[in-house]
Computed example of a mutant assay.
Amino acid sequence: MTLHICSLKVETAQAVPVLASDYYLLRFPYTVSDESWDPHNMHRPTQPGGAVSTFPDARSGLIWPTVSGWGCLTAMVYWDAGSSSEYRARFVRDPLSLTTGYDSTATTDDAPTPGGQYRHYSHAMFVHPNTPIGLMVRHAASTPLAVTLAELKLAIEDNVTAVPPPPPLLPGKTFP
């Protein structure tokens, strides 16, 4: 059994715009540190299909699973002070609709607390190499709010008796 791990952390503030109905994909740098660790190459600038990403473009928010299996996702989000009536987060399969299409799961909606707005999320689901994973957030403030710290971690157990087949690719999409 191998546990495939990708652990991402960013402490560079990201301004989350005011969004009428959509979510913002959090971005992560391509560096290794005490918290950011990617021994299985799931978060690399050169991505499947040959596209090259540079932090903080949207593709820097993607984890590309290297194996199919049971994925355990955890995330942490620290919001800067602001006046929002809600904070939302969701894990999303293919958040940029690059291969199999946008598929959100585990959406969480939180009210503000009296102190800082610090959130932790977890979810488990089947993952596949042709479907990237991302963490998306939104708020209900009338002005942009910053996320000052974000972490996204994926651990894949690949020794699963039966893994469902991967979702089909979108029409016109190919996967190397």
Score class of each variant (00 low, 15 high):
residue 158 D to R: 08
residue 146 A to P: 01
residue 161 T to P: 02
residue 44 R to W: 00
residue 64 W to I: 05
residue 14 Q to W: 00
residue 120 H to C: 13
residue 62 L to H: 04
residue 84 S to R: 03
residue 18 V to N: 08
residue 162 A to C: 12
residue 63 I to G: 04
residue 144 P to K: 05
residue 10 V to G: 02
residue 23 Y to N: 11
residue 110 D to W: 10
residue 115 G to R: 05
residue 62 L to P: 01
residue 56 P to G: 11
residue 88 R to N: 13
residue 134 G to I: 04
residue 88 R to C: 13
residue 83 S to V: 07
residue 136 M to I: 00
residue 107 T to S: 06
residue 36 S to F: 03
residue 70 W to I: 01
residue 157 E to F: 09
residue 146 A to G: 10
residue 124 A to T: 13
residue 50 G to P: 07
residue 140 A to K: 14
residue 58 A to S: 14
residue 144 P to Y: 00
residue 39 P to W: 05
residue 48 P to T: 09
residue 101 G to P: 03
residue 68 S to D: 11
residue 131 T to F: 00
residue 128 H to F: 07
residue 121 Y to L: 15
residue 70 W to M: 12
residue 93 R to M: 09
residue 22 D to Y: 07
residue 64 W to Q: 05
residue 2 T to W: 00
residue 47 Q to N: 09
residue 105 T to N: 11
residue 162 A to P: 07
residue 174 T to I: 03
residue 70 W to C: 10
residue 148 T to N: 06
residue 141 A to T: 03
residue 171 P to V: 04
residue 86 E to P: 01
residue 86 E to K: 10
residue 75 A to W: 04
residue 118 Y to F: 15
residue 83 S to K: 02
residue 11 E to C: 12
residue 152 L to Y: 00
residue 126 F to M: 12
residue 100 T to P: 00
residue 52 V to S: 10
residue 45 P to E: 08
residue 131 T to Y: 01
residue 24 Y to M: 04
residue 83 S to G: 14
residue 160 V to H: 07
residue 86 E to T: 10
residue 24 Y to K: 02
residue 110 D to S: 15
residue 79 W to D: 04
residue 98 L to T: 09
residue 98 L to A: 14
residue 87 Y to F: 13
residue 80 D to K: 14
residue 111 A to H: 11
residue 16 V to P: 06
residue 112 P to Q: 06
residue 146 A to W: 03
residue 15 A to H: 07
residue 155 A to K: 09
residue 4 H to G: 08
residue 116 G to M: 12
residue 148 T to H: 07
residue 70 W to Q: 04
residue 157 E to S: 14
residue 123 H to L: 01
residue 83 S to L: 09
residue 159 N to S: 14
residue 121 Y to C: 11
residue 13 A to Q: 11
residue 31 T to R: 13
residue 121 Y to K: 07
residue 22 D to F: 00
residue 175 F to R: 02
residue 101 G to N: 04
residue 156 I to S: 07
residue 105 T to R: 10
residue 97 S to A: 15
residue 49 G to Q: 08
residue 161 T to C: 08
residue 98 L to C: 08
residue 16 V to K: 03
residue 169 L to I: 05
residue 84 S to A: 14
residue 29 P to F: 00
residue 130 N to Q: 15
residue 32 V to K: 01
residue 57 D to H: 06
residue 118 Y to A: 14
residue 132 P to N: 07
residue 110 D to A: 15
residue 139 H to Y: 02
residue 115 G to C: 08
residue 31 T to C: 01
